[in-house]
């Protein structure tokens, strides 16, 4: 029982991270039909940004958090403007390859700035682990869970209640239709890019204290986030959340009850099975775009 609860905690913590990353993938996809393979690198930028601003320059945590996310979103803005917008007659796969190029570029850049070694930062609050039925829960895990849920609910209201959110959804449903009804769809795409990369950086910021931050940490996290997004159904907010938590918990249980060597394999087998049974993910509705 104690062990099971501990696995659950581990799964929930990782799952919340995957979920935040997956939401970033999903929201960009619904606005642009693009999968950003550099998304994991924005997670890395978030984590390393916090290392510099909070750990290095000792800014107050909220300021460091906000500045890091804003900084990463600015990089996302520049990326969209210089590398995505400029492509004429883009084929989806061409844009994907550009994002692959961007991921290598960002990783290389981060290596120049932060060096090849890993860095660490202390947890947001210095409380001791909380004892729940013998299992230990880190306060940072609670931070992560709360922030993930707040982000998801916030986005939900953004889509439902604000004009910009509705306009963004309209663009996602039909770009030309939205354009005809006076929505500046290009600006919506840009906004989606900025928000998506900002979300990636947020994931990086909240994960930084529980793990080690290095220039190459983003690839695996990005991949897991992509899996979570597809598992839940790309383009769906709740799908991304569900996919993230499912993936995290399955991984932790796989370590506990199957084999730690095969934990990734177990997660991917589950993913394949779900896709075979429901080819559009758990919550996916529309067919994803073709190449």
């Amino acid at each position: 029982m104690e062990a099971f609860v501990q696995y659950l905690f581990s799964g929930l913590t990782n799952g919340a991270i995957y979920a935040v990353i997956a939401i970033g993938f999903s929201m960009l996809y619904s606005a642009t039909e693009l999968i950003n393979f550099a998304h994991g690198e924005f997670v890395m930028l978030g984590a390393l940004g916090l290392v510099t601003l909070w750990g290095g320059l000792h800014l107050p945590l909220p300021a460091a958090f906000a500045l890091t996310v804003a900084g990463a979103a600015l990089v996302g803005f520049l990326f969209e403007r210089t590398a995505i917008r400029t492509v004429k007659k883009p084929h989806p796969i061409v844009l994907v390859i550009i994002t692959v190029g961007a991921s290598i570029f960002l990783r290389g850049g981060a290596m120049m700035i932060w060096g090849k070694d890993a860095h660490s930062v202390p947890p947001f609050s210095g409380h001791p682990p909380i004892d729940v039925a013998g299992a230990k829960l880190l306060p940072q895990s609670i931070w992560i869970l709360v922030i993930a849920v707040v982000l998801a609910v916030g986005l939900f209201y953004f889509y439902r209640r604000t004009l910009t959110g509705k306009a963004m959804q309209a663009t996602a449903i039909n770009k030309w239709g939205a354009w005809l009804s006076g929505i500046p769809s290009e600006r919506m795409v840009l906004l989606a890019f900025v928000m998506s990369t900002g979300l990636g950086a947020t994931a990086g910021v909240i994960i930084a204290p529980i793990t080690m931050c290095s220039y190459d940490m983003g690839t695996m996290l990005g991949l897991k986030g992509f899996c979570a997004a597809m598992l839940g159904g790309i383009g769906s907010l709740w799908g991304a959340l569900a996919g993230g938590f499912t993936l995290g918990i399955v991984e932790a249980l796989a370590v506990g009850y199957v084999s730690s060597a095969a934990k990734d394999a177990v997660a991917f087998i589950l993913l394949l099975l779900i896709l075979y049974i429901k080819p559009s993910g758990l919550f996916g509705t529309a067919d994803a775009s073709r190449f």
Binding site: I35, D264, A265, F268, S289, R290, F291
Partner: peptide, 25 residues
């Protein structure tokens, strides 16, 4: 047989998952 029934990014994901499993094996 099962994977090619998927399309677009789902096909990408399906093949990616298979690739990861093969790598782990």
């Amino acid at each position: 047989m099962p994977t090619l029934k998927l399309s677009g990014y789902y096909l990408g994901m399906g093949t990616l998952g298979f690739g990861m499993i093969a790598f782990i094996v």
